[in-house]
Design a protein around this nucleic acid. Sequence first.
RNA 1: GCCCCGGUGGUGGAAUUGGUAGACACGCAGGACUUAAAAUCCUGUGACCCGCAACGGUCGUAACGGUUCAACUCCGUUCCGGGGCACCA
Length: 925
Amino acid sequence: MEYNFSDIEKKWQQHWKKVGTYQVDNESTQPKCYVLDMFPYPSGAGLHVGHPLGYIASDIYSRYKRLKGFNVLHPMGFDSFGLPAEQYALDTGQHPAETTRKNIATFKKQLDNIGFCYDWSREVQTSNPHYYKWTQWIFLQLFNSYFCNTEQKALPISRLIEKYATKGALPKKGEPIPGRHFTADEWNHFTEEKQQEILMRRRLAYSKYGEVNWCEALGTVLANDEVVNGVSERGGHPVVKKKMRQWYLRITAYANRLLEGLDKVDFSDSMKEMQKNWIGKSTGAEISFNIKGQPKNQSGLTVFTTRPDTIFGVDFMVVAPEHACIEKITTPAQKPEIEKYLQYVKSRSDRERQSEVKQITGCFTGAYALHPFNGKEIPIWTAEYVLAGYGTGAIMAVPCGDERDFAFATHFQIPITNIIGHHFTGKEANPTKEAILENSDFMNGMKMSEAIDFAIQKLEESGIGRRKINYKMHDAGFSRQRYWGEPFPIKWVNGMPVALDEKELPLELPHVATYKPGPEGQGPLANIKEWTDMNLETNTMPGYAGSSWYFLRFMDPHNEKTFCDRKVSDYWNQVDLYIGGTEHAVGHLLYSRMWTKVLYDLGYIGFDEPFKKLVNQGMIQGSSRFVYRKNGENKFISKAFIEKHQIQQLHVDVNLVDGVELNIEAFKKSKPEYANAEFLLEDGKYICGSEVEKMSKSKFNTVNPDDLVVQYGADTFRMYEMFLGPVEMSKPWDTKGIEGVHRFLKKFWRLFADETQGLIVTDEEPTAAEMKILHYTIKKIEQDTERFSFNTAVSTFMIATNELTDVQCHKRKILLPLLILLAPYAPHIAAELYQSVQQAASMEEADVVNAAFPKFEEKYIKESSKNYPVAVNGKMRTTINIALDADQKQVEEIVLQNDIVQKWLDGQSPKKIIYVKNKMINLVI
RNA sequence: GCCCCGGUGGUGGAAUUGGUAGACACGCAGGACUUAAAAUCCUGUGACCCGCAACGGUCGUAACGGUUCAACUCCGUUCCGGGGCACCA
């Protein structure tokens, strides 16, 4: 009886599929557990070994929870809208729906090979009209809602309209800076356009003009990804920023709740930190500066600062190059220079503007602001280091306290005012809050940290400014000038967006003849006459639309009446465990948290955080291999000799290399041009170079799980992926080690079966030593699985197998529970052996998937003594076996009698003997 | 540039709360079985020093410094690698 993994795996996968073992009910008396993976984008390249890392982890956890008696929801689907499919369509003319269908089929087949316990009857695909009907429906909820600042939640926009019609929108008492206010009477006499425009300022999904990367030569808008150093990745054409009408989600309204919600979820500290930084809450003041020569209180310049205490240290102002005021304030003399500068900035990405800090650029507008307290004239500059999207897009620069302001002042020789005395050396800025203020009028002599509040008070009293909380986060751009995304359920009437009726959903994506961009950088939908004739919105939604709520659809995937029945979402509730990569730290996770909060506010679901616990899997990097071709010849030089030749380094497919040794025959066959290649070998071998890089097809370092499953089986593959290291950590892939795990499974098999005798399991009573091995393993596997330490769990299985082999244990009472422990990790081999060992009545009973997790009993592993490490001055010198219940005095006696301890004491008596029960003993001399 | 994570033998990693650094594997070396190979099994394997021996010594967790009876673990500084930075997913 041999371990024939391919037969076994096929048999059980078919059985589980036939019986519907993994289908989950929405009703159960058992406690629920919802385990979810971040669903993949089905790329044309198929699955590589990096993808399944998180899936295997969640699969193990799901199976474990099932053994523990939970009703486990563990679904899978596809995030199937996206740019690559559209690019592929542009290149080949194939419809994205078609390529997507093919890619999904490949992915599913690859996933099924690995033996996951997904309930495929719940599969969702975001590009399926049955699914995106509800994405569009949720969009309409967003469009038809506003964020009520009093209640701090989303409410139907009808409530706001009613309020405007009866009470108007009047300034709050003491509001110093006038906003856009009107009475109820005024509202009722506004034109509809005007009313809609006002409502647009409050809708959670709204439309306004925003900037995009525009490439004139390609006639299209590009993703940041597609822009490299200011030119398009394809073709290298110039890219500039262009204003276009766009849709946005008012995620900023939820900034504070997104921040506070982090206290309620179990994400890693670093993940919370990243989200906090993204939201970027800061408290400070908004201050208005009048401009010299302009009427007061009209076209002033408003800045946001976290340090109003430094207001007397302002030496210049900087406005973002996009700031609307530049046009108004620039003096005729400076105009040519400013225009030249703005042209330059247009070609620069935000990233470049922030990162290239050593290169200081800017331009004087010729205008001056007036200091609000003393009327001093302050020059107004524009510079790329101030971003339009942050704060008010304008800053007051205090060079003695801010590094970038200091560098700017130095570069342009702007005189610096020192308000912090000796804390400022003149050589670098000092951002301290501890200094005592000087040259600061009414704040002279105050400590800066205390002056902040005082300054705000003064600003508010004199109507110059007000306390302000600012968020770095800005509203999320929600439209793309693309084809392969959800169409907006919106049509334009008299320049106003009007929501389609729910009954008209889904608004299906029409077929197009070409995927080329529409006129003026609009999306391909603008090329379709029937579409534009109906005045339908030609933008589509971005990739994150469908993924912002898919975890809800999995609960109730076939519901035609609603996106997810409230009763069902009340049962499944939050996702208990969510596994995915950190690359989604801020995007997807914040959007789905926001959508959940909106749906909660509107009463559609009963929880406002989607993911209770989040585990981030690390990236599996590729380990690339290189061959070295002699320049101008079809000759390859082994690594040892490359210094001596003029060579070209080429990526070689890692699948043609064993470790670093090239399989020359396979290499020759891989490409016709290599068929007659010559080789300069070392010790008869061709040795390749290697480097760790991102795993990608273009680097020829991808490893396909299918190949490994064929060679070693799914169980070996699953356990090896886990054995590589902690799930959260990134690590390079190395196929070499997989043999070890495979050997382990074969060894494990031999505990049960012999090649000649077949099954060798006996009914003998286990010894105390064997029970100890079993119960230690139960404890460790349970602990490690609960804390997602799957790599140490695998080594625990190895240790148990090694120990049981050593004592030649083939006893049913030990092996049967061990199989249940192993089942989540290696389900096929466990199922096969369980069926053989267990003399069960029915197939259902004989299936280890339905077994109960063994119960750990302390009594079997209890020890009465411990081998204590004994250290002298912190250095371990020997170990002594001492009873666990020994007290300090007894321990001291035993230790001092020990020969080795005596040797190290060298006649002296120890100053102190530290004895930590169950840990160690340390003698201090 | 900013934010987050990581750095331990030839390699992947272990050390769960500050308490025996290197578990478990890979690789390598040697051996057993075999006509041979595969498979399997056994032994050794951080570096260095002393030695007939070892239950002998010194060093060692990116580098430097600190806290502590005790530091891979805590604090500070530096270096290196990875991820994110708002239209890749």
